[in-house]
C-alpha cells in the first residue's frame, strides 16, 4: 500500500507574527517554519501504519519554494520513505493546490491520500475535499480514528452532533483532525537517516488559476478598554445608552 501525505510549510503556529507595513503579507523575518500541525498528524498516522505493516510506502509531497525541503526532511525523519518537492514560486489557493495534488496523485497512484483537514496559516479547510472531488474518489474528513482493511478504510469522524463512522473503498482521501494521534518526538538517529532518503524535485504540472486572492493582511483592531459599573442598575442604563437594550 502506498500512502501519499501532502505537507504544507507554515509559520510556527505558536509564534507571534506581524503584518508587513504595506499589508502585502506577513513579516516572516526570523520566523520559524513548521510542518502544518494537521499534516504532521497525517505523517505520524502514516508512519504508525508502516510500523504495523512494513509493506506500506509513505510518500510525502510539498508544493512551494526550495525551503519546503526542511519540512520534507522532517517528515522523512519521522519515518516517511521518500519525498517530492513540487518547486514553484507561484501563489496557490485551495483549488489550485487540489489541481496540482491531483497531478501528483496521477503520477504516484497512491491507495490513500492522508492530509491535514486544514492548514494553520489560512485555515481554509478545502484542499482535501477539492482533491477528492477532482479525482472522483471517496473522502472522509476530520478523522479522529482510522483503520485500514483490504481495499477499504474505516474512519471515525467528529461532527457537531457526535461521532460518525464511515467505511469507504480505497483509493480515497482522508483528512486528519487533532485527536487522531499525538506526533512522536523525532529521534536523532531518524534525522540522520533522513539525510540519505530520496527527495525528488519536480516542476509543477499545472498553472494556478486563482479564484481567491489575498488583498491585504492587517492586525485585528485592538479592543478599546471597557469600563467598570458599580451596580446592575448602572449596567442596564449603560446598555440602554448604547442602544443594546
Amino acid at each position: 500500500m502506498r500512502i501519499l501525505v501532502p505537507v504544507k510549510r507554515v509559520v510556527d503556529p505558536y509564534a507571534k507574527v506581524r503584518p508587513l507595513a504595506d499589508g502585502s503579507g506577513l513579516d516572516t523575518t526570523g520566523a520559524k517554519f513548521e510542518i502544518n500541525p494537521f499534516d504532521e498528524i497525517a505523517v505520524e498516522e502514516a508512519v504508525r501504519r508502516k510500523e504495523a505493516d512494513p509493506s506500506v510506502e509513505i510518500v510525502v509531497v510539498s508544493i512551494g519554494a526550495g525551503e519546503c525541503e526542511e519540512q520534507l526532511r522532517k517528515a522523512l525523519a519521522i519515518g516517511a520513505d521518500r519525498a517530492i518537492l513540487v518547486e514553484t514560486s507561484e501563489a496557490y489557493d485551495s483549488p489550485s493546490i487540489a489541481a496540482e495534488l491531483a497531478a501528483v496523485v496521477a503520477a504516484e497512484s497512491p491507495d490513500l491520500v492522508l492530509m491535514g483537514k486544514q492548514a494553520t496559516d489560512d485555515d481554509n479547510n478545502q484542499a482535501g475535499q477539492m482533491l477528492a472531488s477532482r479525482l472522483g474518489w471517496p473522502q472522509a474528513t476530520f478523522a479522529s480514528k482510522l483503520e485500514l482493511g483490504a481495499g477499504k478504510a474505516t474512519v471515525t469522524r467528529e461532527t457537531d452532533t457526535g461521532t460518525e463512522t464511515l467505511e469507504i473503498p480505497l483509493p480515497a482521501v482522508v483528512t486528519t483532525d487533532l485527536r487522531l494521534n499525538e506526533p512522536r518526538y523525532i529521534a536523532l538517529p531518524g534525522i540522520i537517516k533522513a539525510r540519505s532518503k530520496p527527495l525528488e524535485r519536480r516542476p509543477a504540472q499545472t498553472t494556478p488559476r486563482l479564484r481567491t486572492r489575498v488583498l491585504k493582511v492587517e492586525s485585528p483592531p485592538s479592543r478599546a478598554a471597557g469600563r467598570k459599573v458599580a451596580s446592575v442598575d448602572e449596567l442596564i442604563s449603560a446598555l440602554k445608552e448604547k442602544g443594546v437594550l
Binding site: E69, E70, R73, K74, A77, Y185, I186, A187, L188, I191, I192, A194, R195
Partner: peptide, 14 residues
C-alpha cells in the same frame, strides 16, 4: 543546519 535544528527541537520538546 536545518537537521541540527530538528535535533535541538527534539531536545527542547523533551
Amino acid at each position: 543546519s536545518s537537521d541540527d535544528r530538528l535535533m535541538i527541537e527534539t531536545a527542547e520538546q523533551f
